[in-house]
Nucleic acid binder design. Structure first.
Length: 566
DNA sequence: AAGCCAATAT
DNA sequence: GATATTGGCT
C-alpha cells in the first residue's frame, strides 16, 4: 500500500526494505533488475504476468510501495503494462521499456507513471526509486491544472485515444513537447503545485488521479511539466531535493538539508512571484497549500510549520510596489501629513500584511528622492528659458512662493505637501524658491502611477500648466498664510528638521522685505498678489511730504510698510 | 527602536 | 537604469 509520511518517518533505515513490485515479461531482464534491487536491500516481488501482478496489488496492496513495470508492446497476452498502470492508481509506478518511442513514454506518463526509464535500468536509477515513494507520501491534495499545461494535456489526451497507434501522433507530440520544454522552472514550480516535495525525475500525474480513470479527466491534474519527463536519461536534478526536505530527525537522509530548505524557499518565492503587491499572507496560504495540504497523509515533520519558519530561512521577499500598493502608500502619506509621514505610521495606515517598516522606509526614500530630483530640474528648465518678458512677469513673482503653500487652496483638505525646493544652497539670499505647483513637476515613471503631487489635489492648484502671464497662481495672502504654518519638514536637506519654524521666526520679516524690495525695484512688473498698490492719494501725499509736487517719471517708491498685507 | 540615507543587490 | 534591500549612522 501507499506509504504515508508517517510511515516513512517511522521507517528507521529507509529506504531499505522498500517493497517493489516488478513486472517484466522479459525474464532475464527481470532477474537482472531484481538482483540489483535486492542488492540495495529492496524487497522485490517479480511478476511476468500483468494480471497476476494486478491481482497481487489488489489482494495485498500493503505488500507494495512501488512498481516497476515494463512496457512490452510486443507481448500479445497482456496490454503491455498499461493495464497495470491504469489500475495501480495508488502505487507509484515506474514504466520501463526497450522501446524509446516518444509517444509510448508520453502515454505512460499520461496514464500516471511517475517515471519512464529506458532499459536497462541502471543501478543509480534503481537506487533512487524510493524517492517516488517519498514523493507520493508527501504529495497530495488538490491541485489545479495550470492553464499553461492545458494544451499539453489536451494533446496527450488525444494521443491516448487511439491507444493502439503509437507512431501516428509523433509530429503533434513533438510540437507539444516543444511547448512542454518551454515551460520554465517557474512554471514547473507552479504546476507541480501541490508538491512541497519536489517531484522525482519525472513529473507526475497525481497518484490516484490518473488520466482516463473514472472518466473525469477534465478536473484531473496531469503534469507534464519538465523537459526531463521525456529525457531518456532520467537522472534529473530535481531528484536531488526530493527527499532532503524531510528533515525528519534522521529518518530520511538529509545530506543536503540546506539546499532543500532553499529550494522550498524558492518555491515560496516563486509562488509569490507575480502576486500583486505584497500579499504575503496570500502567498503564505498558497504556499502552505502547495507545501503541506496533505489530506490523506498527514505530514508533520519536515514541513515548514509555519510562515515564520520559511521566512526566517529565506532572504527577504522583494516587495513589488504596484500602483495599487503605492496608492495605499500615498494615501497614508497624505493622511499623515508631511511631518507625520514616517515609515512606521505609514505602515500602520497601509494595513498591508507582510509589508515591513523597512519596505515602507525604502519606498518613502525613493518617493522623496523622486520629488527632490524632479522638481528642481523641472523648474530649472523653465527658469532658464525665460525670454518672453510676459512670461517673466509671471515668474518674477517667484518670491511669493517663498513658503510652501501648505494650505494654499481653500479646500478642506488639510493635507500638507512635501515642499519642493530649489537647488540647495543656490538661494543665498534666504529666499526659498518653491516650485510652481501647477506644473507637472514630477513626471512619474511608468511604474509610478500615483499622483505626481501627492498631498496636493491637482485640481486645487488652479494653475494651468503654462500659466498665462496675468494669471498668477498664488497670492501673497495665501503665502503669508503659509508663513504661519508652523510645522513642516524640509526634506531638501539631509535631516528632516522642522526648519520651517526657523524660517518663520527668523526669516519671515526678511522675506517680506525681500519681496517688497523686489516689487519696488522693478515697478514695471505687476505687483505680486497680496501687495496692494498704494492709492494715488497716498502717493501724492507722501510725495508732497517729501517736497515733490509732481509725480516723477521714474517711480521713486512706495512705502513698503504700508503696502504689505499681513 | 525608528528614521534616514548611501551602498549594494536584483 | 530603475527599483528594492541592506547596513551604517544618528
Amino acid at each position: 500500500m501507499v506509504c504515508t509520511a508517517n510511515d516513512i518517518q517511522g521507517w528507521t533505515d529507509f529506504p531499505k526494505g522498500l517493497k517493489v513490485l516488478l513486472l517484466d515479461g522479459d525474464r532475464s531482464s527481470a532477474a537482472e533488475t531484481k538482483a540489483k534491487l535486492e542488492a540495495m536491500d529492496y524487497n522485490v516481488s517479480a511478476f511476468d504476468d500483468e494480471d497476476a501482478a494486478l491481482s497481487a496489488i489488489s489482494s495485498r496492496s500493503e505488500d507494495f510501495h512501488i512498481a516497476i513495470v515494463e512496457v512490452s508492446v510486443s507481448t500479445s497476452s497482456s496490454q503491455g503494462g498499461f493495464k497495470f498502470l491504469q489500475n495501480a492508481k495508488d502505487l507509484p509506478t515506474i514504466m520501463t521499456s526497450n522501446n524509446q518511442c516518444l509517444s509510448t513514454m508520453m502515454k505512460c506518463i499520461a496514464l500516471g507513471a511517475v517515471e519512464f526509464q529506458n532499459k536497462p535500468l541502471s543501478e543509480d536509477k534503481l537506487r533512487n526509486i524510493w524517492q517516488h515513494v517519498v514523493h507520493k507520501a508527501f504529495s497530495d491534495g488538490e491541485s489545479v491544472l495550470p492553464d499553461s499545461l492545458k494544451p499539453v494535456k489536451k494533446s496527450v489526451e488525444s494521443l491516448l485515444q487511439p491507444q493502439t497507434e503509437n507512431g501516428q501522433h509523433e509530429s503533434k507530440i513533438s510540437i507539444e513537447l516543444d511547448n512542454v520544454s518551454r515551460l520554465s522552472d517557474g512554471d514547473y514550480d507552479h504546476s507541480a503545485g501541490s508538491d512541497k516535495y519536489p517531484a522525482p525525475s519525472t513529473p507526475q500525474l497525481k497518484q490516484g488521479e490518473r488520466l482516463l480513470d473514472g472518466g473525469d479527466c477534465q478536473e484531473q491534474s496531469n503534469y507534464f511539466t519538465e523537459k526531463e519527463s521525456v529525457e531518456l536519461d532520467g537522472d534529473s536534478k530535481s531528484v536531488d531535493t526530493s527527499c532532503e526536505n524531510l528533515n525528519t530527525e534522521g529518518t530520511a537522509r538529509t545530506r543536503k538539508p540546506a539546499k532543500a530548505l532553499i529550494k522550498g524557499e524558492e518555491d515560496f518565492a516563486e509562488c509569490c512571484k507575480g502576486e500583486s503587491a505584497v500579499s504575503l499572507n496570500q502567498c503564505h496560504r498558497k504556499f502552505l497549500s502547495k507545501a503541506g495540504g496533505n489530506t490523506t497523509s498527514p505530514n508533520k515533520a519536515g514541513v515548514p510549520r509555519d510562515f515564520r519558519e520559511i521566512k526566517a530561512n529565506r532572504k527577504k521577499m522583494k516587495v513589488d510596489w504596484t500602483p495599487e500598493l503605492h496608492k495605499k502608500f500615498v494615501q497614508a502619506v497624505e493622511q499623515l501629513g508631511i511631518d507625520q509621514a514616517i515609515p512606521s505610521r505609514i505602515l500602520e495606515l497601509m494595513k498591508v500584511e507582510g509589508l515591513t517598516r523597512h519596505n515602507v522606509a525604502s519606498h518613502l526614500q525613493k518617493y522623496r528622492l523622486q520629488k527632490r530630483q524632479t522638481l528642481p530640474r523641472e523648474e530649472n528648465r523653465r527658469w532658464t528659458n525665460q525670454k518672453d518678458p510676459m512670461q517673466r512677469n509671471y515668474y518674477v513673482q517667484r518670491p511669493i512662493m517663498a513658503y510652501p503653500p501648505y494650505h494654499s487652496n481653500h479646500t478642506i483638505s488639510p493635507v500638507p505637501v512635501y515642499p519642493m525646493l530649489g537647488q540647495p544652497g543656490s538661494q543665498t539670499d534666504g529666499v526659498k524658491v518653491w516650485g510652481p505647483p501647477g506644473y507637472p513637476m514630477w513626471q512619474p515613471s511608468q511604474s509610478w502611477h500615483w499622483k505626481p503631487f501627492p498631498g496636493v489635489h491637482a485640481d486645487t492648484w488652479g494653475c494651468p500648466v503654462l500659466p498665462p502671464p496675468q494669471a498668477p497662481c498664488f497670492s501673497y495672502t495665501q503665502n503669508m498664510a503659509g508663513l504661519h504654518n508652523a510645522k513642516a519638514v524640509d526634506y531638501r536637506f539631509g535631516t528632516p528638521q522642522t526648519s520651517f519654524e526657523h524660517h518663520t521666526a527668523m526669516q519671515a520679516e526678511e522675506v517680506v522685505d525681500k519681496v517688497v524690495n523686489e516689487a519696488m525695484s522693478k515697478p514695471w512688473l505687476p505687483l505680486p498678489l497680496g501687495l496692494k498698490p498704494p492709492s494715488a492719494d497716498s502717493v501724492l501725499a507722501e510725495l508732497s511730504k517729501q517736497g515733490m509736487s509732481s509725480i516723477p517719471l521714474v517711480n521713486k517708491g512706495v512705502k513698503p510698510h504700508s503696502s504689505v498685507q499681513r
